[in-house]
């Protein structure tokens, strides 16, 4: 489904040239749930931009769903992003003063054919992420976790080949993060191909497989024998908070 074959990416020219990625090769099968880990400066962002069709490799071959991405011009890349990729960003990136439903329908505006059942589709994906009762809310009326789930619904509206998430829990509290990962788990069970780019090992361990980037190369590639279960994590959290609730809330100890 996804094939990276000796992909390199360099920025700048001459003496100032920076090699962000060097001969990276890997593949992701359809239906896989993969985490790409790395500290900042390891080429993680570059890899994410290449995977997302926001940029093209300097060398090597990237095939997504049978399309050679390196050969695409800007319009081609735009169409690829629109049809084959669903983005989830750390910052949510929802349009303000626009309802959840309208935000979810945004990618359809850039599709060649606007589906007649767009609104029904939008409602379906919002229900799928547990926001059936929040469709007409604007982002400032939603919690961070809800906003990120709107973003997931938006990523799913075009039924993309790849759901690509960049630090999706980075701006969320622990509970909202687990709720989001629980949504990912369900999507994975339904056969969605998911790549999560993160520096957080605990997030990465929800995936089937972890690839670690170091200095622009894949340094480690391992299967997760027993991926963490987000739903179980939520239960544990609820239990511990219930226990904590019996004690004095921390905030009130401070005079």
């Amino acid at each position: 489904m996804i094939e990276f074959d000796r992909v390199s990416k360099t920025y700048g020219e001459g003496a100032g040239q920076v090699r962000a990625l060097q001969d990276v090769s890997f593949s992701v099968a359809a239906g896989e749930y993969v985490a790409i880990m790395g500290a900042s400066g390891t080429g993680k962002s570059t890899l994410m931009h290449l995977l997302g069709g926001l940029d093209t490799p300097s060398a090597g071959v990237y095939r997504l769903d049978g399309v050679d991405v390196a050969g695409l011009n800007d319009d081609g890349l735009s169409a690829l992003r629109n049809r084959k990729i669903g983005f989830v960003f750390q910052q949510f990136h929802l349009l303000e003063r626009t309802t959840a439903l309208q935000n979810v329908l945004l990618p359809l505006i850039y599709a060649d054919d606007y589906p007649a059942d767009a609104e029904a589709r939008g409602r379906r994906v919002l229900e799928a992420v547990g926001l059936g009762d929040r469709m007409d809310h604007r982002p400032n009326e939603l919690s961070g976790g809800q906003q990120q789930r709107v973003a997931v619904a938006r990523a799913l509206i075009n039924d993309p080949a790849l759901l690509l998430a960049d630090e999706p829990t980075g701006n969320l509290d622990r509970q909202s993060g687990l709720q989001l990962l629980s949504v990912f788990k369900r999507l994975h069970q339904q056969g969605r191909t998911i790549i999560v780019v993160t520096h957080d090992e605990q997030v990465a361990e929800h995936a089937d497989r972890i690839r670690v980037l170091r200095d622009g190369r894949i340094a480690d590639d391992r299967r997760v024998p027993e991926p963490r279960d987000a739903d179980a994590g939520l239960e544990t959290l609820a239990a511990s908070e219930g226990a904590a609730g019996a004690q004095q809330p921390e905030a009130e100890v401070v005079p």
Binding site: S78, A79, R81, Q91, H93, L106, I109, Y110, R154
Partner: peptide, 16 residues
């Protein structure tokens, strides 16, 4: 800028 970047990521072409 962010709105424009988002629209581009979601498939808007330059001319869109």
């Amino acid at each position: 800028r962010k709105e424009i970047g988002l629209r581009r990521a979601l498939g808007a072409r330059e001319r869109d």
